[in-house]
Amino acid sequence: MGTTVPLDLLPGTLELLILKSLAAGSQHGYGIAQRLRTVSDDLLQVGESSLYPALQRLLLKGWVKAEWGASENNRRARYYRLTGTGRKQLAREHAGFDRLIVAIQKVLNAT
């Protein structure tokens, strides 16, 4: 576990990553977790006990919608889909996050 990055460092990070991973298309909870892990080369291991509450928060905000559908192996699975406001939110947070990262980098690299 020492190789993974804690996601609660900056509040809202997990939500941003979920939104990003849904930008490509709708996905179920397991799929989102898988995607985050593979894309980050196993650096990001999302605990399910944070993933599902985070998804509920996004539902509450209205940034994603949930629908039941059939999974790739024909099981019933809940698929999450980005809404219009969710997409806008993603763009806004992405930009904000970029600035934050730059700022943090600057501070850390300052001599």
């Binding site: 179920h28 909870g29 397991y30 977790a33 099981r75 019933r76």
Partner: peptide
Amino acid sequence: LAEEMAFHRDM
């Protein structure tokens, strides 16, 4: 929620 998480574990 229960069904969703059961699905997750199975996967």
